[in-house]
Design a protein around this nucleic acid. Structure first.
Lengths: 211, 211
DNA sequence: CCAAAATGTAAGTAAGTACTTGCATTAGTG
DNA sequence: CACTAATGCAAGTACTTACTTACATTTTGG
């Protein structure tokens, strides 16, 4: 670990990067150590010199993905306190992240029952900071009176991210393109969500809005 | 096809049913013909006598799934024309269907890039009639003035089903249960959606204050 | 009952899989 | 330069997979 460790960690990184790619495109089952080594442009034996077995490589992949996600999140949000503007901006950024990791997200959704812990970390844990930021924002909005106070912010936030996730899955799975564009979907999602959570101005005694 | 075809189709049906189960739990790649035959309680050779290869069996599985889905749909909807009641009922039924087919849906989401046509048929085509019913309902609501007319009903419907799909994926993947219940999520989804798509009171039976 | 259809059994093939072993070769460091 | 860690290369092991072949056995309908 003292001498020529540098090139060693380089090939290790190349292996992890290749594994991310192959796991994403071929699935956890379908990915072969041969293919991963080929993509990394190293010998297959080198793979096993760096990682005890395929599962250890998977663990390294997960660590790497979570680290990458943490970097992406490092940029601080600034809220304008305009529900529509803020949530639209948030939705755009979140959707970009979803599309960037589409293949990997698909893989872990499909393999969630066989690798529950890994799927949870990649999907849930990676999105958690975003989720908490948005939860805090909605709570703030409730205090300011701009967001309905009869809503639980936690499931409410999951509604918005859920719409975006499902939209991404629907779009990218369809060989025939949908009748509407991605931006149309996102705009509609934010539009409906904003009107859905916005406080009805003067606390209207609407018979149905009482939860 | 004349003589003892009856028992032949029986074992064929058993094979398809077993294949649905094994494909759902093990994935399309992970499912082995041995395991499928074992679950169907027939010899593996019998599987290959009925289906040329694993892919032909997969096609039969898809046909069967779509047929089952068509049956489920045969019950006609009756709308009360109360947005909240109708959509809540719809969401409950749709979510029940999602949870019933969770494993298979996961499998095809994960394998969508490797089997695009099959995934499209199972996920998209199976849900199409439901989708169209709901689109028609929203259009009807727009004509009656209860639903915002500035919304495109198509992406709007996909928002609702998307929230439900994502909710199911989130719930069932989590080893640690979420902080809210399934019913809470569905109620919140319908609640936000209804307020999000409802026409800002101009032509509503009760004289309400404007937004 | 009897012929044909359907299934079971045993064995095998060809290919792919994760993973190992032994040895030669490269490349960085002191 | 010399030492050594890192890698490449060739081959092999033990296992699994989809799928096949040949033959014995059971089931079924006329």
């Amino acid at each position: 670990m003292s001498r020529s460790t540098r090139s060693a960690t380089q090939t290790r990184d190349r292996l992890v990067a290749a594994a991310i790619e192959v796991f994403a495109t071929e699935g956890l089952q379908g990915a072969t150590t041969r293919e991963i080594a080929r993509v990394a442009e190293v010998n297959e034996v080198t793979l096993f010199r760096h990682f005890k077995n395929k599962n250890h490589l998977l663990q390294a992949v997960i660590e790497r993905v979570l680290a990458l996600q943490a970097e992406t999140l490092s940029q601080p949000e600034e809220w304008t306190q305009d529900l529509r503007i803020d949530l639209h901006h948030y939705a755009q950024v979140y959707n970009t992240m979803l599309e960037a990791h589409e293949a990997l997200i698909r893989t872990f959704i499909g393999e969630a029952k066989r690798h529950p812990e890994e799927a949870r970390r990649v999907i849930q844990e990676a999105a958690r900071p975003w989720r908490e930021k948005l939860i805090a924002y909605l709570q703030q909005g409730q205090k300011r009176g701009t967001v309905r106070s009869d809503l639980d912010p936690v499931p409410t936030v999951d509604l918005l991210t859920g719409m975006l996730l499902a939209g991404m899955l629907r779009r990218c799975a369809a060989p025939t393109p949908l009748s509407y564009s991605r931006d149309c979907y996102i705009d509609t999602a934010v539009d409906v969500f904003v009107q859905g959570v916005r406080a009805t101005h003067a606390a209207i005694p609407h018979p149905e809005t009482a939860l």
